[in-house]
């Protein structure tokens, strides 16, 4: 608002001459005020459920009236986290989510970076074919693959209740390959060629030049890929029946549908679990928000 007062000062002078700029100026200020009001309403609508989740997670007894949306100091407790932890082993399920997500990230980074680098910087037979294959991977919806993947991974290979079974269908995302390809395309080929002329092997060009250069792209791809498996429900739900192997999202969903009624304050316990599930992504996103938005957007539009 500081800038508007500076611009607002000299408006009182020469009426006819200053007419047009003043009108533009006034409409600029109104526009900013309207924008701010619109954005504030939007922020409340977007953020209220998160606020409500945290407040609900900290309440001793549930209060579904409007008063319940404001924390009552006399009603605050951490019991709900203990309650959900008594039914769903939070540490274990968080670890499972971590292994699932970590496995997906590792495979995506290694395979995706190699493929993205090769597609952007190297000339080899079959390159065009592999690129078209990549595009096909981006347009075919996952639902078509759900049933056959379930038959293959769970029934044929007996990978139910294993981390490998959870990881496999997500192990490489075409989006990540795309991010790496786009990144390496911006880098002049001469950079790699000069290393080759100096006698570096292709493997050295990759490990000494391409990988260190790709650090920003790796961070971007990690951030974009991380959300997928961490938040995923359907696939790990199909693969895990053993509570000791369930990621937190699956264990929490199970708690909601079957066992929530067995605790004193199911509302609070569910919100406590939801807070634990949502927190890591929210923190990561807030810290890295600049990279997240622009890159995720790019991947979304180009895909």
């Amino acid at each position: 608002m500081g800038s508007s007062t500076i611009e607002g000062q000299p408006g009182t002078a020469a009426e006819p001459a200053g007419d047009q700029p003043r009108e533009v100026e006034r409409s600029g200020r109104t526009r900013r005020l309207v924008s701010l009001a619109v954005l504030l309403v939007g922020a409340i609508l977007f953020l209220f459920p998160f606020y409500y989740m945290v407040v609900g997670a900290l309440q001793q007894s549930p209060d579904p009236t409007l008063a319940g949306a404001f924390p009552n100091p006399a009603n605050l407790t951490l019991d709900n986290f203990a309650a959900i932890n008594g039914r769903v082993n939070l540490l274990r399920t968080l670890l499972n989510s971590g292994i699932f997500t970590g496995g997906v990230l590792l495979a995506t980074m290694v395979i995706g970076l190699l493929a993205g680098y090769a597609l952007a910087q190297l000339e080899f037979r079959g390159k065009g074919l592999i690129f078209n294959v990549l595009l096909l991977g981006l347009i075919v919806p996952f639902m078509l693959l759900m049933i056959p993947l379930y038959v293959m991974i769970v029934r044929w290979y007996g990978l139910a209740d294993t981390y490998l079974g959870m990881i496999l269908p997500f192990a490489v995302s075409p989006t990540a390959v795309f991010i790496f390809r786009q990144f390496f395309r911006q880098i002049p080929k001469d950079l790699f060629d000069s290393a080759r002329i100096d006698g570096a092997s292709e493997f050295n060009v990759l490990t000494r030049i391409a990988v260190p250069l790709a650090k920003p792209a790796i961070l971007t791809a990690v951030l974009v890929t991380f959300i997928g498996p961490w938040n995923e429900f359907l696939w790990p739900f199909l693969v895990t029946k053993d509570a000791a192997k369930m990621p937190l999202a699956v264990a929490l969903a199970n708690f909601i549908t079957t066992i929530a009624s067995s605790v004193a304050n199911p509302f609070g316990a569910i919100f406590a679990g939801a807070t634990v599930l949502a927190l890591p992504v929210v923190v990561l996103f807030v810290i890295f928000q600049k990279r997240f938005t622009s890159s995720d957007l790019g991947a979304g539009i180009k895909g």
Binding site: M1, S3, R31, R32, S35, L36, L39, G42, A43, F46, L47, P49, F50, Y52, M53, G56, I227, W230, N231, F233, A249, L252, A253, I256, I270, F271, G273, A274, T275, L277, A278, V281, V282, F285, V286, Q289, F292, T293
Partner: peptide
């Protein structure tokens, strides 16, 4: 538009999109 707190709004609007469905469905 040039208004204060644009980063806050951008992050706030995006939060539901990056959060786990299971968590926000619960709310």
């Amino acid at each position: 538009t040039a208004i204060p707190g644009r980063t806050f709004f951008r992050v706030g609007f995006y939060l539901p999109y990056v959060s786990a469905s299971v968590a926000v469905v619960a709310v």
